[in-house]
Amino acid sequence: MATIQAGESYGFFTDTSVCIGCKACEVACKEWNQLQGDSPSFLADSFDNTGTLDAQNWRHVKFIEHVPDQSATTGNGTAWLMMSDVCKHCKQASCMEVCPTGAIIRTEFNTVFIQQDVCNGCRNCIAACPYGVIGMNSQTGTAHKCTLCYDRLQGGLEPACAKACPTQSIQFGPLAELQKAADVRLAALHSQGVKQAQLYGRDDKVYGGLNAFFLLMDKPETYGLPNADNAGLPSRNDAGGYLAALVTGVLAVVAGLVAFRRRVTG
């Protein structure tokens, strides 16, 4: 890959059809970012014992079993879905929208980054992120998520997770190149008759486009991702919420004035 340059948009194309659920990405991320991980627990949920993205897990491989109970299947990434989930580095980032401190910024690589020294742990971003990406570290009192290996990019290195992924399910690069690669892959799958393959976040239908976008083998909801109809920014509720409050306020003031009105008799 060409050198990593400030001013260019970078991201991930995660092709779930070739993910083998090895979790190398999870571990590589923890190793590079010195995350301890959560205390071990058996979740009895397929091969997933990580559970969710949080402050200790910036990559999380989801396992969704749709294996038909029969001898032969076509496998092909459709029967046991695996998806390495991560911060989407949304073009229109819900987290960034609500953050009151300005801790969440867009970097020179067009990625979404939480400045640890600025964040004060209010957790508004957690309430906002539609992907359940962000978690709190109670030790630091700050919000954490994938940095898209900001430090590595600055040093000209590709992110640790992409580097570790053995099957190139996670591809890192300039967004435009990734989008091209994704289109080619989708076309190939469609021509092989894998019609359910679809790109998610490649276009601007969800959050103006995702810097970390995916090739999925089923509907987005199956993977726990909001579909295009269901992807809204938090600010969509500003107007409605304030309007209802305003109307209530006016009615309440009138009601108060009426209740407290000057008495007729002494």
């Binding site: 609500v98 009151p100 600025v118 964040c119």
Partner: peptide, 28 residues
């Protein structure tokens, strides 16, 4: 805010290096 309690004032003042100033986002 827990461990970050002492950064309560970041609600009002942006301390982002190179981009300091007051924080006000009418949509937030």
């Amino acid at each position: 805010l827990g461990a970050s309690w002492w950064k309560f004032w970041h609600m009002l003042v942006d301390v982002t290096p190179g981009d300091t100033g007051l924080n006000f986002k009418y949509w937030s």
